[in-house]
Design a protein around this nucleic acid. Structure first.
Length: 882
RNA sequence: GGGAGCAUAGCUCAGUUGGUUUAGAGCAUCUGCCUUACAAGCAGAGGGUCCGCGGUUCGAACCCGUGUGCUCCCACCA
């Protein structure tokens, strides 16, 4: 079979993904193996695959594939999140394009469109995950609004309500006065605008006046107090005194509170609890009256007393004029501030108080905090523990109602007079309401369900157990087997939104932690360190990149650039490195396939010049690489156990590229058009297979392909089990390192002396233990292009001298020697060694060091000393010879 | 404003409890090679005041203090 010049990923990737799927390799069912479970952080149904997903899911796939190859029952659950805000916005936009406004539709009609949208676009991202090779158990695909899941969310709401953890409370929301709807924070766009800061005099009850500063003079009609900093000397005498709101003469108290900054405006703040978040909190603290001076369309209400029914910005102009004529305007300054605008209608957003549903978090947070602090749940990297602790210790209550239709509708029903009941369904609510209102005549048509739906996170916090129907079918076989899950892989930005809440939900509803390890990925940024965003247009087209470089190269590129716990600066050059690595593997395969065609016959093997595995030299190469393989396999395994995926990949990369390709294959490579010993060939194939095993979790496609091309296989790498790792022989490994060092030093000498690569040299070795070199002679010859190697007891004249450790090497070539350069090189080496010796002797001559340092440290320093002395002696001898 | 984190080669990062490190890797750079798997390659090399200052210690990239610069999260200021 003819192999292509370069590796061509596309057909190979689709071939193997189909093959794995048709063999059900990704499907998991409970059995007697140990489970390894990962639930995907469900992407939004609106999502299309971007770099963040790619990183996140590549990591999960590496963990899952490794677990599968380690004999675990690996189960990776896919799914999507209904993402109420994002999806509703998409659906509204789609309707707008069709000329339909949301307000013209009933809830049922709107939801029909939303489901239509979800069915059409909601699965795109899951399809895209197949492209990057994710080995997800597709039979388990879940959705946060599946019928059972939906019911569990409702049940959780009821449960928390019964336990007294859910309550109703006021909250300031973003109100769009044109669309007459609440906006989510994401839908508010802050723009810098040129405003005016008005300084307004309020008359004091005891005479005189106090001046406050505001950019919204129309809201003074809702003022309930004036607040000053308690440490502000200017106002200390006014604490507890009264002032009058201009125009309407409402009497308001002057209260001291730390909230007020001394150096802004006049240091005196008007407090308007109905129209400002912070003022609302001050109002709560001091039990101030809440005067809502605005209607839902942005006009002034009855409570304003003045300008009733007039539009807010008109009122601003009028009230400034009226205040001026009444002599209350002290001054007006230009002022630049940030003002929120509605994404939908571009009108200025009005903060408005409304009644919302809340979860009290203190009790839920307690077990969730200690689980992480006691490392029952391990955070990787651990630095996120601090952040988590700080947030959990200062946890605020969670507002769970959203003014949206797409989501889990809040299971609360109201009578006309506002009496409400929380229940699983309308019938149950009716029963409760009949009792509450003492009205047995009440019917289903008299009660109305809450219009709002629940925060998306109120469903996704159940994800780790509800994907196994842990609540809808409690104690079922699956949840008992797979829960708690093993590893959660997610971005640190949702540590509070999602991770913390899943931990709370796990303890609250399953009495058990949801996962054992949490791996926080970095944020994917562009080359300049900017976050990837649609508006910057700096997110690359991932599917396009996969087409160009192949999925394995994309996986490689993103992982090699992704240090644990740090953000990744994405650069296409990393993908090139991945593609080049693919080619390297492919070419190594081609070399081995060439050998396959030239395996030595019995006669050839009997030939006296033929090298076999039994020869010392080839035996050394085989022996060395086998040990090297075991050594590095263990390192990789340890790194992966510590979730250092990026270091693990670097280590495998270097094992394959440097140790296997650059050293080992060159060492065992037969001479030009020579056959290869069968035993060496089979060993090589076996090593190559093991390398493919180790690399498979990172680059599944090419490794599977090479695994099958190497020889006929009756299994697939995807489900193969890792071969056991034997303990490496450090002595052999060390000899290998010395050999590499000698080869490199001699090649360097060739380079520096401008000996052409093709020119053969004659090498003389001066060493006390020539036997150690005799066993590697033919490798050495091949690697430095020498026609012969001999041993000597004294310096060889007219040669290039190279020192490695205590041994001397003389290169004889048909070239004029540059003794000046050679001497300079040796002097440089000598200076380095002498300086090194000085630093060692400084320690050893220090009595305090000898008295205080650990004995093994001193032994070490003494060895450094003798080694350095020996090297200096060698160099000095060499210098004398020049 | 409150909190968290980071600072080591041109870039991205390793560097385990302070001592085999006058500091390692990959990428980039430079030199020489179209050598019979691979020029998307091979061989080799150069490159660092471990952010500044002070301290602890026999010994500091590592521990402590301080200054500077950057990043993120939360609240965003009338």
């Amino acid at each position: 079979m003819e192999l292509s010049k370069n590796y061509l990923p596309t057909p190979i990737e689709s071939k193997w993904y189909e093959h794995w799927l048709s063999n059900n390799y990704f499907a998991s069912t409970p059995d007697n193996r140990e489970p390894y479970t990962v639930v995907i952080p469900p992407p939004n149904v609106t999502g299309v695959l971007h770099m963040g997903h790619c990183l996140n899911n590549t990591i999960q796939d590496i963990l899952i594939r490794r677990a599968r190859m380690r004999g675990k029952n690996a189960c990776w659950v896919p799914g999507t999140d209904h993402a109420s805000i994002a999806t509703e916005a998409k659906v509204v936009a789609m309707l707008r394009e069709r000329g339909i406004t949301k307000s013209s539709l009933s809830r049922e009609e709107f939801l029909a469109y939303a489901w239509e949208w979800k069915e059409k676009y909601g699965g795109i991202i899951l399809q895209q995950l197949r492209k990057i090779g994710c080995s997800l158990d597709w039979d388990r695909t879940s959705f946060t609004m599946d019928p059972d899941y939906y019911q569990s969310v409702i049940q959780v709401f009821n449960d928390l309500y019964k336990k007294g953890h859910i309550y109703r409370g006021k909250r300031m929301i973003n109100w769009d006065v044109r669309a007459k709807t609440a906006l989510s924070d994401e839908e508010v766009i802050f723009k810098e605008v040129q405003s005016k800061l008005y300084f307004i005099n309020y008359d004091l009850e005891e005479g005189g006046s106090i001046t406050i500063a505001t950019v919204r003079p129309e809201t003074i009609l809702g003022d309930a107090a004036i607040c000053v900093n308690p440490n502000d000397e200017r106002y200390k005498h006014l604490h507890g005194k009264f002032a009058f709101v201009p125009l309407i003469k409402r009497k308001v108290k002057i209260i001291p509170d730390e909230y007020v900054t001394l150096d802004f405006g006049t240091g005196a703040l008007k407090v308007t609890p109905a129209h400002d978040m912070n003022d609302y909190q001050l109002g709560q603290k001091y039990q101030l009256e809440i005067i809502d001076t605005m209607n839902d369309d942005g006009t002034m209400s009855q409570a304003a007393q003045l300008y009733i029914g007039e539009e807010r910005f008109e009122v601003r102009k009028k009230i400034v004029a009226d205040l001026t004529s009444a002599g209350h305007i002290n001054k007006i300054e230009e002022y630049t501030n940030q003002v929120g605008f509605s994404e939908r209608t571009d009108v200025v957003v009005e903060p408005r108080l409304s009644l919302q549903w809340w979860v009290s978090m203190k009790d839920l947070a307690t077990p969730a905090l200690s689980a992480v602090m006691n490392d029952e749940i391990h955070f990787h990297p651990a630095k996120f523990k601090n952040l988590y602790r700080h947030w959990m210790e200062n946890i605020k209550d969670w507002c769970i109602s959203r003014q949206l239709w797409w989501g889990h509708r809040i299971p609360a029903w109201y009578t006309l007079d506002g009496t409400f009941a929380v229940a699983s369904n309308a019938e149950e609510a009716l029963t409760q309401l009949k009792i509450a209102t003492k009205n047995n005549e009440l019917s289903l048509t008299d009660i109305r369900q809450d219009d709002d739906c629940l925060d998306t996170w109120f469903s996704s916090w159940l994800w780790p157990f509800e994907v196994f129907k842990g609540l809808s079918d409690p104690g079922n076989k699956e949840v008992n087997y797979y829960y708690p899950t093993n590893t959660l892989v997610t971005a640190p930005e949702i540590i509070f939104f999602w991770v913390a809440r899943m931990i709370m939900a796990g303890f609250e509803f399953k009495q058990e932690q949801p996962f054992k390890d949490v791996y926080f990925t970095g944020i994917v940024r562009d080359k300049q360190g900017r976050k990837m965003s649609k508006s910057l247009g700096n997110s690359p087209d991932l599917l396009g990149l996969i087409d160009v470089y192949g999925a394995d190269a994309v996986r490689f590129g993103i992982m090699i650039a992704s240090p644990a716990g740090n953000d990744i600066l994405f650069d296409e050059s990393a993908l090139e490195q991945g593609r080049n690595f693919n080619n390297k593997l492919w070419n190594a395969l081609k070399l081995v396939k060439m050998w396959e065609a030239r395996i030595a016959t019995a006669e050839e093997s009997a030939h006296s010049n033929f090298v076999t595995i039994a020869d010392e030299t080839e035996g050394f190469a085989i022996n060395w690489f086998e040990n090297r393989l075991n050594k590095v396999a263990k390192e990789v395994d340890d790194l992966l156990s510590q979730f250092k995926l990026n270091e693990a990949l670097k280590t495998v990369y270097s094992l394959i590229w440097d140790d296997f390709c650059s050293w080992y294959l060159e060492w065992v490579k037969p001479g030009f058009e020579q056959p290869i010993d069968a035993a060496i060939y089979h060993k090589t194939v076996n090593y190559f297979e093991r390398l493919m095993e180790i690399l498979h979790p990172f680059m599944p496609f090419i490794t599977e392909e090479i695994y099958h091309l190497l020889k006929d296989q009756n299994d697939d790498l995807c489900v193969k089990q890792f071969q056991p790792i034997s303990t490496p022989n450090e002595v052999i490994l060390h000899s290998g390192e010395i050999l590499k060092q000698v080869i490199t030093a001699l090649r360097d000498a060739r380079n520096k002396n401008q000996i052409k690569p093709k020119d053969l040299i004659q090498l003389y070795i001066q060493t006390p233990n020539s036997s150690s070199y005799q066993s590697i002679e033919s490798i050495l010859k091949k690697q430095i292009n020498a026609h012969s190697i001999s041993y000597t007891n004294s310096a060889v004249n007219n040669t290039i001298l190279v020192n490695v450790e205590k041994d001397k090497f003389y290169i004889e070539a048909e070239r004029q020697l540059d003794t000046v350069a050679m001497k300079a090189g040796l002097l440089k080496d000598l200076a380095y060694e002498q300086n090194f010796l000085v630093s060692v002797m400084k320690k050893l001559n220090n009595e305090k060091f000898v008295a205080n340092a650990k004995p093994d440290v001193i032994v070490l320093e003494r060895k450094k000393q003798s080694d350095a002395e020996a090297r200096i002696k060698t160099i000095e001898e060499s210098l004398q010879g020049i």
